[in-house]
Design a protein around this nucleic acid. Sequence first.
DNA 1: TATTGTGAAGTGGTTCACAGCT
DNA 2: AGCTGTGAACCACTTCACAATA
Lengths: 209, 209
Amino acid sequence: MKHVAPSTIRRLSLYLHFLEACALEGQETVSSRALAEAGGATPAQVRKDLSFFGSFGRRGVGYPVPDLAAHLREILGLGRTFRVVLVGAGRLGAALAHFEGFGDRGFRIAAVYDTDASKVGARLDGLVVRGAERLGTDLEAAPADIGVIGVPAASAQGVADALVGAGVKAILNFAPVRLVVPEGISVKHVNLALELDALAFALRDGSGR
Amino acid sequence: MKHVAPSTIRRLSLYLHFLEACALEGQETVSSRALAEAGGATPAQVRKDLSFFGSFGRRGVGYPVPDLAAHLREILGLGRTFRVVLVGAGRLGAALAHFEGFGDRGFRIAAVYDTDASKVGARLDGLVVRGAERLGTDLEAAPADIGVIGVPAASAQGVADALVGAGVKAILNFAPVRLVVPEGISVKHVNLALELDALAFALRDGSGR
DNA sequence: TATTGTGAAGTGGTTCACAGCT
DNA sequence: AGCTGTGAACCACTTCACAATA
């Protein structure tokens, strides 16, 4: 398959979320206009996005809701469950462990780790926090797909190395540091400081963007 | 000032963070190459980014660390403190309240609100959680610059409306919904579900991106 | 008439390459 | 020699416009 732009993937994900909401309401079809509104795009862009992968709609009618949702899940690779390990059982880890968006969509938190002995053994959303030193052997027995890093900046790179060593191929990083990982490992950063700076910039000259 | 691309702002913010680290080490100058590495860019792009706002470097030498940092703070509008109000005192709110990235850089959390009566009165990082109904009158007395939304998706739009009504011009939203706000209000979304979908896509065919 | 599918045109951000200083 | 500053070339994503179809 040809290269897909990150911005396109982002929109496809938004379309899918919207389609799932439509499906719950029993809606049969949606127009590119409705999808555009949901995805922060234009109708033309929605059609371009979708036509890149196939012809899913019917002219004069729109796109069939359950059908298109299934196609998008397939395209995004959501047709299976993902084993997620969370490293960091502090306040952020607690918030993440309880986040419904994980379980809802096939992302299953398999285990939570922390280096802090005082946190090990505690319960987080039904999971017992395990010592970080077990990560390697645990994942050897049962590999994970995604690692979530919710530890302080200083220890984030070490955690990333451990995750990569344990065979994790995708990382979601909440620590405000740029992680260095080998070729072939996907990393997504969520960096609060960056978002705040962007808002500061928008507020720059009195009125917002 | 002319239009600046969001991707540029993001990089400027990364350059600034790196410069601050360099300053702590007493480094005098940095090259576009070093900045590029820190910002996930190429040296040429660093120079383009910076030259858009002026000539801050010296040919053959590089960029003076403290000087460039000051310029970037000015460009990003970080030359002042920002009053931030946090709505939502749940687990996410707790994690956000303790996040050092706020206080470090002139973003001061002025107050925390929640609609849940059982949370009102509790302490979060030295702040007492206030009832959400007070938000309007509180901000009338002391306006805030930025509102952070850390409530469930269902109540996020209501909170956004309240914030906008109270004069907030910039919003950082952690709820997985697209907020509708009037022209002139800046919104930044942090959407976990989107990041997870992007990672799923990267894992799609066996190996990562 | 309503709406998709898509080649073509347009726009804007990135990379190149080299002139200009130190 | 080393490194910045920048116009020009390049590339990629977006928008347009209209043919195709229900």
